[in-house]
Write a protein that binds this DNA or RNA. Structure first.
Length: 139
DNA sequence: ATTCTGACTTGCT
DNA sequence: AAGCAAGCCAGAA
């Protein structure tokens, strides 16, 4: 696993604002390299220094074996949680509401990171960004 | 080279 | 809603 990839993943994780989250697959898609499992591998090994709880499974479940610690952060950051489960260790984040939508400035940084991991010789291979797909469906 | 494994996803019961 | 199977991407044995 290339160092630049790790750095990019960690940098991207750091970009996620408090109270918001992103799925492993989202990070992989944003970087345009690798898959969800690669993100998971990076987070597992190097994620301790970044807000790892803001990176979770697409289902809204926190990383395995870290539900308890993750939940404390969610409560502290007012991350939207599913009702009911906000009492047990199996709390789930409401992805529809909590999923981070990067602003223009963030997109710029993300594109920079993507270019960085794609190798210096890429021809504007920005990630398959979806400009503004609606994912915030307010219930 | 081949097989196993994993902080994953998706689709089908 | 919950469990299962197959896909997927890379690193390790």
């Amino acid at each position: 696993m290339r160092t630049e990839y790790v750095e990019a993943v960690l940098a991207l994780a750091r970009l996620i604002p408090p109270g918001r989250v992103l799925a492993y697959g989202d990070l992989a898609e944003l970087l345009g390299v690798g898959g969800p499992r690669q993100i998971g591998a990076v987070m597992s090994r190097y994620g301790s220094s970044v807000p790892w709880w803001r990176v979770l499974r697409a289902s809204g479940q926190p990383p395995r074996c870290h539900e308890g610690r993750a939940r404390e952060h969610y409560l502290a950051e007012d991350t939207p949680l599913h009702p009911g489960g906000d009492d047990a260790a199996d709390c789930r984040v409401r992805m529809a509401a909590a999923r981070w939508r990067p602003d223009d400035a963030a997109w710029d940084r993300i594109a920079r990171l993507a270019r960085q991991v794609a190798g210096t010789a890429d021809v504007g291979s920005a990630p398959a960004v979806r400009g503004d797909e609606g994912n915030v469906s307010a219930p």
